[in-house]
Amino acid sequence: MSDPYGDRGNKDISITNPKGMGSEIPTRGDTSFPSPGGPFLIGDGMTAGYGNGPDILHDCTIAVDKGEIAVIVGPNGAGKSTGMKAVFGMLDMRKGHVRLDGEDITDLSPQARVAKGMGFVPQTSNIFTSMTVEENLEMGAFIRTDDFSDTMAQVYDLFPILKDKRYQAAGELSGGQRQQVAVGRALMTKPKVLMLDEPTAGVSPIVMDELFDRIIEVARTGIPILMVEQNARQALEIADKGYVLVQGANAYTGTGKELLADPEVRKSFLGG
């Protein structure tokens, strides 16, 4: 039986507009309650999946504390991005809790989490391609009612190339520059924690190094960073804490250095 609200495979662009359409983010309430103690941000014992689909995460725990960079690595399809999205409230949590700064935010919608101080850079479609760089940053600051010009100046200091291209459409920029816009957009809310989903996907090694430098620079300003990375070795080198996920569950956890030194991890995930 087909979905009564589905499109029956119709893809007629003269009547329907598939571009930029939203995905199915579950609707949630807006109630959070105090839950003191523990790390600054933690997804604790998360079991989650999309819609009515099967569980993708199984009792998975991810956390990051103040002044830290935490990195999630693992093979393809291990649920790295899914874990990140679960922390951000973008899929159905069946078990477990998410806590931020002493508050249980499991029931909050992603928008409400942004208001609580979480910044999120998705892996794809993470900029407004038809808008200028400056407009992208302005949209990042949409929930702010105060004057955000100094934050914008800080972002331009961090990514000087963006200042030069501020009136260009973001979609016309190179891959690395687009990622800078994406990170800059997320920084505009002055987040208390920044979550990056594969920020270096599809950029050249040189650009990748530069992006990592920038990310370290952001971390030095005191913002904890939780990030998913495909380039496990480099990511673990800069990480204070590392999570290796396999099939949606924690396989190894430790500091970046520990994981890099662990022979099991080296053999299985770092190519020897």
Binding site: K11, D12, I13, S14, I15, P18
Partner: peptide
Amino acid sequence: LRSDYLAIA
């Protein structure tokens, strides 16, 4: 090809 414009046609 990837999408059509049957309705307006």
